[in-house]
């Protein structure tokens, strides 16, 4: 059976909120190392990958591999009943037809209990190769969201160019064009404001802004976002879920390529 206790319901609430417009139904795959999710959007252009390692929970117990087939709209309805600071416990049997969710207030004076019906989901899993990216940018997540939403007002697509001069986001549309350039920046007082750029070779790729703006719904999960680019491969946008390494919410986006 599965029993997983999260100290803050906020993490799961925000994860589901960030991905529910991209994917509708998905399996939460539970095993002794933690809970993982991998799902593509209907158009097979974007992929969501969530990893919550066992050490993100206390306690965590999962004796066998269990796939929890969840409709995210339904899960959202149940999670709405949890306060951000509630302790959240997930329970399921080995071959479950429902997922039990318990929300406890921090001072334990309120306990809510819900059962969510599960579904059989035949999910296509993709093997994501380990990639040494040519450019890695670590920046404030709200700043990345602002750049994407600002540029989407002008165009459907953005070209991201990484060079020794910095990272340049460029778009052009019917009303005109725009660009934003980021340079490496270290704020000694507040390192959450840092912009870190690692570059091994120049990169230029074009992406649909609609998806990038969608990924930025995860900005509430983490102060910083990591964006990884290499020529001719999908973009990776990654948010840390907890202070523990390995627990993250990742989005992959296929580029637009020449005909």
């Amino acid at each position: 059976m599965l029993e997983a206790r999260l100290d803050q319901a906020e993490i799961l609430k925000k994860v589901v909120d960030a991905i529910k417009d991209l994917v509708q139904d998905c399996n939460f795959d539970c095993n002794d190392s933690g809970i993982a999710l991998q799902a593509m959007d209907n158009s097979h252009v974007a992929l969501v990958s969530m990893n919550l390692q066992a050490d993100s929970f206390a306690p965590y117990r999962c004796d066998r591999n269990i796939a929890l087939g969840v409709n995210l709209t339904s899960l959202t309805k149940v999670l709405r009943a949890a306060q951000n600071t509630d302790i959240l416990t997930l329970r399921a049997l080995d071959a479950p037809d429902s997922l039990n969710l318990v929300f406890e207030s921090q001072d334990k004076d309120r306990i809510s209990e819900y059962d969510l019906k599960l579904m059989d989901i035949d999910q296509e899993h993709l093997g994501i190769p380990e990639t040494e990216y040519a450019a890695t940018i670590k920046m404030p997540s709200v700043e990345f969201r602002r750049i994407c939403t600002d540029l989407m007002a002008l165009s459907e697509s953005v070209t991201i160019e990484a060079s020794k001069d910095g990272i340049k986001f460029t778009c052009s549309g019917d009303i005109g064009n725009g660009s934003v350039t980021l340079r490496q920046h270290t704020n000694v007082e507040n390192e959450k404001e840092n912009i870190e750029i690692e570059l091994s070779e120049p990169v230029a790729l074009t992406f649909s802004l609609k998806y990038l703006v969608n990924f930025c719904k995860a900005a509430g999960l983490s102060n910083t976002v990591t964006i990884c680019l290499s020529n001719e491969v999908p973009l990776l946008v990654s948010y840390a879920l907890t202070s523990k390494a390995g627990s993250n919410l990742r989005f992959y986006l296929a580029p637009k390529i020449g005909d």
Binding site: H44, I257, D259
Partner: peptide, 14 residues
């Protein structure tokens, strides 16, 4: 002119 690629082009079946 650019065309939106799909992920299957880059990520294989595991």
């Amino acid at each position: 002119p650019t065309k939106q690629a799909t992920l299957g082009k880059f990520f294989g079946q595991p």
